[in-house]
Design a protein around this nucleic acid. Structure first.
Lengths: 219, 219
DNA sequence: ATAAATATTTAGGCAAATCTAAAAATATGT
DNA sequence: ACATATTTTTAGATTTGCCTAAATATTTAT
């Protein structure tokens, strides 16, 4: 399987996570930053290989085999991200590009030993779960910070947008995974929020709050 | 630069190490396990990019830029080999294939941090020198064991053949880099040798002796 | 319900990297 | 030195993954 094929499979998998039963050609084209006609070409090839179901004009859906393959690529991607952060001291906004390359290295032994070296991590530096050898992964209760009511608290467990710009913004305001975030007040006018992180109080826009996942805490 | 182009550049570099001023199309085709006509196509492209000198029917020679690029790829390959052995406990006969893939990952930061993680190693698991960031590498006095006279001693510092079969053979007879090898006697008939490694005495064929490098020791 | 807008596929082309078969240049042997 | 053998290059084809432009199917709106 080529890198390009793997990237398509991964792209379809991610779009499917959004709840869609079937992924349209144009949605996939946008995700892959390519043209719909190129997508049509590729999905025909992947359908022939049994990795996805495709009927003309009906969009695509991964087969079991395709989904399994996607999980393997995602596992590799996330493990490499952990490696880069934990072992090579990369910042969390610097890992994606490199992991995009490393995820295509083929060697089961490499992946399994890397997993062991990193102590079988369950989440990557952005809070996304890492599938195990069998493709299983932990899920945890999480809500967008923007969906949390005033006076509630949550532990920051992940980001929705993992672009470098957003991650650097979080760094700047010292918001990191594991922090407890308390919602002090919500502004209904612009949907901005007053929050407290540790001892620091700050005001964040809706755009920020709607890209941060927290695990709600009782009381 | 594509992986394929990098592999050609690397192949030419290695062939040039053998002392040849100019590398023929057919020698390169054999090295790359491809056909001479494919080589002609590729070297034309590489010549256009300024990575090598090529005149029809005259063979090829790397430019400064080409050689610099080759050294970078070789640096990455060998660093990854050290990583696989030191950090992931790969055996020395299991690293080549995976390193062939990893050597094409593009990220200067990755390479430099990997180098630091490994404590700036100067030699890879097969005893080959690792170029530094500037392409410089240590050379050390080494001779083929087969060229050592009887009653001489040397420290095993490298292998010429790094095929899995040969490396496994060495494992089987507990010959490893760093061992002191003493030549007890040479058989002129079949050029086999009686050697002593640590406390063990063994007889090795010329084929083995001519693929093991040693650093000759005085007296 | 039918026309207009949108989405998707087809057709034909291009670049990279390979191949085979044929042509051209170089090297070798007597 | 000249014919033969070998090496190298050229020509034309294939596959992957992409493109543009045109054709076709589907969806939407009146």
């Amino acid at each position: 399987m080529t890198s390009s094929e793997e990237n398509y499979i991964k792209g379809i998998f991610h779009l499917s996570q959004g709840g869609q039963h079937s992924i349209t050609t144009s949605a996939l084209a946008e995700k892959m930053e390519t043209k719909p006609s190129s997508v049509t070409d590729m999905v025909k090839r992947l359908a022939e290989k049994g990795l996805l179901h495709y009927k003309k004009y009906q969009g695509v859906r991964l087969t079991e085999e395709g989904a399994g393959h996607a999980l393997k690529v995602i596992r590799k991607h996330r493990l490499w991200e952990v490696f880069l952060v934990d072992k090579l001291n990369f910042a969390w906004d610097q890992v994606h590009e490199v992991a995009e390359q490393l995820e295509h290295i083929e060697s089961e032994m490499l992946v399994d030993r890397l997993d062991a070296l990193l102590n079988f991590p369950e989440f990557d530096p952005h809070g996304d779960p890492i599938p195990d050898k069998e493709g299983r992964f932990k899920t945890r209760e999480k809500k967008l910070l923007s969906a949390m009511p005033a006076k509630s608290r949550g532990i920051c467990v992940g980001v929705k947008d993992s672009s470098s710009q957003f991650l650097k913004f979080l760094d700047k305001y010292h918001i990191e995974l594991g922090n407890t975030i308390e919602v002090l007040e919500r502004e209904s006018f612009d949907r901005s929020m007053h929050i407290q992180v540790g001892k620091r109080k700050l005001q964040i826009s809706h755009q920020i709050a709607s890209n941060l996942y927290v695990k709600p805490q009782p009381e």
